[in-house]
């Protein structure tokens, strides 16, 4: 059943979905090998868009609506939390995107956060790089959506979209807490709810007060109303950041964050192999360094 690195490289280059699916599994289980394979593949710089917001706000639905209207190659990385008790996970984000399961221009993949905090998965950098080897024009990342700690998305996405809904009471609270700083575009969902207009006005006030210039877009993720505007905004932003240098500097930083994430994972793996009944911190440190160097 094992397939070789070369088979994967050849498969992914010829856009074989099965090979690409395997590559993503390797990203999760073996980052060293994943990085090696990715380095052998041609990459295309896609627009990496992070979609964040509280649970139930409609992140999967908005991705589904985007997929219906984006006539280009789109990758979706959907992340759900792992269970702190069993380590297992229920990955249900796909449910709302299943009408695109057989769409050849779309590739959706579900990931467990595997204990990682920050709303992403430990393998997110490898996975994101891998998607760029599969000839994608846009990569959408759906974060876990636990709120304040969901800020890591800014380290990997070129554009962060913060989704809000007029039904949620904690929205403004959440923004005060700091997630607002990382948002490049605000989207207010459920535009059929009259309260959405009020929320948009309120947001625009807060943005203005903060001396910023961030667009606020009204959408209805179920009917697709307003999604065209969001696409227009995403595209014009992508064009803009490529010209003004933001994109280049983000990508440069992403390499650093990738290295950071890669090393953390390596340390985590080693720590798991060290006897847990060892109590002397210095000894643990020595052991870790020894294993790191070997």
């Amino acid at each position: 059943m094992q397939i070789s690195e070369s088979q994967i490289v050849n498969g992914v280059s010829s856009r074989d979905r099965k090979s690409f699916a395997k590559l993503l599994s390797i990203c999760e289980d073996n980052p060293v090998m994943a990085n090696k394979i990715i380095s052998r593949l041609q990459r295309k710089e896609a627009h990496v868009v992070g979609i964040t917001g509280s649970p139930g706000v409609g992140k999967s639905s908005i991705i589904n609506a985007l997929l219906s209207k984006l006539s280009r190659r789109v990758g979706v990385i959907a992340i759900d939390p792992s269970s702190p008790f069993s380590g297992g996970a229920l990955l249900g984000d796909r449910i709302r995107m299943q009408s695109h399961a057989t769409d050849q221009n779309v590739f959706i993949r579900s990931f467990s956060s595997r204990g990682a905090l920050g709303g992403l998965s430990p393998s997110i950098f490898e996975v994101c790089d891998a998607f760029e080897t599969f000839d994608m024009d846009m990569i959408l990342i759906e974060t876990v959506g636990v709120g304040q700690s969901d800020t890591e998305i800014a380290n990997i996405a070129d554009t962060v979209v913060l989704l809000l809904s007029p039904d949620g009471g904690d929205e403004i609270q959440m923004m005060k807490a700091g997630i607002m700083e990382i948002a490049d575009i605000f989207v207010v969902n459920k535009s059929d709810n009259p309260a959405s207009i009020g929320l948009k006005t309120k947001l625009e006030g807060i943005i203005k007060f903060g001396g910023k210039n961030i667009p606020v877009i009204l959408v209805n993720s179920i009917t697709g109303d307003g999604v065209d505007n969001l696409i227009k905004e995403l595209d014009s932003r992508f064009e803009r950041i490529r010209v003004d240098g933001t994109f280049a500097s983000k990508r440069k930083k992403r390499v650093f964050f990738h290295a950071q994430s890669f090393l953390r994972r390596k340390i985590d793996t080693i720590m798991q192999s060290i006897e847990s009944d060892e109590t002397d911190i210095e000894k643990i440190e020595k052991e870790l360094i020894k294993k790191l160097c070997s």
Binding site: R17, K18, A21, K22, L24, S25, S82, G88, A89, L90, L91, G92, R94, I95, R96, Q98, A101, T102, F107, I108, R109, S110, S112
Partner: peptide
């Protein structure tokens, strides 16, 4: 285990493509 659930009303085509894509 890591469990992906498709939701109801899936065609065989959707199920098979999902199984393959999700590896």
């Amino acid at each position: 285990m890591e469990v992906i659930y498709t939701g109801i009303r899936q065609t065989p085509e959707q199920i098979v493509q999902t199984a393959i894509d999700e590896d």
